[in-house]
Amino acid sequence: MIMRNWQVPLEENLLEGHVACQGCLGALAMRLMLKGLGDNVAVAIPACCWTIISGDVLYHALKVPVFHTAFETAAIAATGIKAGLTMRGKKDTTVLAWAGDGGTFDIGLQAISGAAERNEDIIYAVYDNEAYMNTGIQRSSATPYGAWTTTTPAKRPEDKPKKDIIEILAAHRVPYIATVTPAYPEDFLRKVKKAKEIKGFRFFHIFSPCPPGWKMPSDYSVQAARLAVQTKVFPLLEIENGEKYTINYEYPKEVPLEDYLKLQGRFKHLFKTPEKIEVIKEQIKKRWEYLVMRHKLTHGTTDNIVRKVFYK
């Protein structure tokens, strides 16, 4: 088989006919996640876009079983499923909690903290589209500074930085945390496969652009995700046991943040207040410096960070 750019399994566990919006990277993220995990998987999905995406009650969009659960319960429902399957002798099944940013950063955080602290043997994945998209683009604590949402109007856009969910999880000393985005599918798959072999609580923060919610044409979503990585808005990294930090990738050239912002209507108003763009740049810079410091602490060098144009 020849596929020049990618080494990905052709096995599809996402079926066609799901009803995600055009250009939804939350759908692509699931497709990639299940390419990595295979079909010995059970999924718990709380209230989120995927409640709708997977279809009407009588139909199903995945080749793996899904239990729909309440908004704040993805982590604990997955814990229960894992316990139930274990008791029924199905110990090798990977149980995946698959939630949006609202269900993770906000309402679900308590159950996540509980499951993380107990080191439950599940994978928790948040596909983060940076607002409550399914209910109509309301602000969540994952909404970035400066963004428009229907509850942070352009006249008074979001004025808090995005909650640093990764650091919260790192403080729980869980065995594995990874940040991924479908724009880098091999990085995504490599981390999923790595996580699959680890026992205990594994956390995936998946950056998932949402064309309608970000006021962006549907064909831009992969590009937006790529730009988020290139501009360091969303660094790709791994944290092991809450201590070992690895920045996987740094784009070898400086990419202006504006390139990322201008793709998206939700940041349109920011160009009238350039000082706010500077605030974001400062946040990004500080966060990156912190991560580099942690990376250095772990590896003694930053030379092992991949610095290629085309990172997979």
Binding site: A42, A44, F67, T69, A70, T73, I76, A77, A78, T79, G80, I81, K82, A83, G84, L85, M87, R88, K90, A111
Partner: peptide, 11 residues
């Protein structure tokens, strides 16, 4: 919720 997950998994 844990009971629900476990019961859904057949336990």
């Amino acid at each position: 919720s844990a009971c629900i997950g476990a019961s859904a998994a057949g336990a």
